[in-house]
Simulated scan of single mutants.
Amino acid sequence: MRISRTDVAVHDLIQDFSRVDVGALIDRLARSAAVVTAAGYAGFVQVDPLQELARSVALHGPPGDPLRVRAWLAESGVLKELAVCHRPVLLARDAPVGEPGFLAVPVPLATREQAFLWIAGRDFDDFDTHLLGRFATAAGRALEAASGMEAAVRLLRGVQAFAP
């Protein structure tokens, strides 16, 4: 069977567009947020405001989790606060009580669900809020672009299925 130029062209587009790995992108964004803000920890929380639920979808932190941020996220009630909040959340560090210091900002997303980008591990101030907000905007753009590439792949598979 002879392969048509259309098949090759569409196949090549699908291959190029499929190279975006959203999970890896989210992880890289979290790691980069920790570095850019000089925080020990960073991650993303996905929010369902209708059901008032939030869940952690990425967490980057030092090996061994010395501040126990994973446990703190699950036990502190901060996820519940993010589920109903639409603005930055800033919690001071209080090491004797186990509070790691926490800052979360909404990620502006147009076509995806609501999300927060957060950092933890020290005290944060207005400069950190501004810096993380700018980073969250860039992250939102990257996630939207990745979502657009995934949608394009689905559409191109339809083109491929119906192309002569």
Rank of each mutant, 00 (worst) to 15 (best):
residue 2 R to W: 04
residue 2 R to P: 15
residue 3 I to P: 04
residue 5 R to V: 15
residue 7 D to N: 10
residue 7 D to T: 09
residue 10 V to Q: 00
residue 12 D to C: 04
residue 12 D to P: 03
residue 12 D to G: 06
residue 13 L to R: 06
residue 15 Q to L: 06
residue 18 S to V: 00
residue 21 D to K: 01
residue 22 V to E: 15
residue 23 G to A: 13
residue 25 L to R: 03
residue 27 D to A: 08
residue 28 R to M: 12
residue 28 R to P: 11
residue 28 R to G: 11
residue 28 R to W: 07
residue 29 L to W: 04
residue 30 A to D: 01
residue 31 R to H: 13
residue 33 A to H: 14
residue 33 A to F: 07
residue 33 A to M: 09
residue 34 A to N: 11
residue 35 V to C: 10
residue 35 V to Y: 15
residue 36 V to N: 15
residue 36 V to C: 14
residue 40 G to K: 14
residue 47 V to E: 03
residue 49 P to K: 10
residue 50 L to V: 12
residue 51 Q to Y: 13
residue 52 E to C: 13
residue 53 L to G: 09
residue 55 R to E: 15
residue 57 V to M: 11
residue 58 A to F: 08
residue 58 A to I: 08
residue 59 L to P: 04
residue 60 H to M: 12
residue 61 G to V: 11
residue 65 D to T: 06
residue 69 V to F: 06
residue 70 R to P: 12
residue 71 A to W: 09
residue 72 W to K: 07
residue 75 E to F: 04
residue 75 E to L: 11
residue 77 G to D: 06
residue 77 G to H: 09
residue 79 L to S: 04
residue 82 L to R: 14
residue 83 A to H: 12
residue 84 V to D: 13
residue 86 H to I: 06
residue 87 R to S: 10
residue 89 V to E: 06
residue 92 A to N: 06
residue 93 R to D: 01
residue 93 R to L: 15
residue 97 V to Y: 08
residue 97 V to R: 10
residue 97 V to N: 05
residue 100 P to G: 05
residue 100 P to Q: 12
residue 101 G to I: 08
residue 101 G to T: 06
residue 102 F to G: 04
residue 104 A to F: 14
residue 106 P to K: 07
residue 107 V to D: 04
residue 107 V to N: 08
residue 109 L to N: 02
residue 109 L to W: 03
residue 110 A to H: 04
residue 110 A to Y: 04
residue 111 T to N: 11
residue 113 E to P: 01
residue 114 Q to K: 09
residue 114 Q to T: 10
residue 115 A to G: 03
residue 115 A to Y: 00
residue 115 A to F: 01
residue 117 L to I: 08
residue 119 I to V: 14
residue 120 A to E: 02
residue 120 A to G: 03
residue 124 F to K: 02
residue 124 F to H: 08
residue 125 D to Q: 02
residue 131 L to R: 13
residue 132 L to V: 03
residue 132 L to K: 05
residue 134 R to Q: 07
residue 136 A to Q: 01
residue 136 A to Y: 00
residue 137 T to P: 03
residue 141 R to A: 13
residue 145 A to Y: 03
residue 146 A to W: 00
residue 146 A to R: 00
residue 146 A to Y: 00
residue 147 S to V: 00
residue 148 G to Y: 02
residue 150 E to Y: 00
residue 151 A to T: 02
residue 154 R to T: 14
residue 154 R to E: 13
residue 156 L to E: 01
residue 156 L to I: 01
residue 156 L to G: 00
residue 157 R to L: 15
residue 160 Q to C: 05
residue 160 Q to L: 15
residue 162 F to R: 14
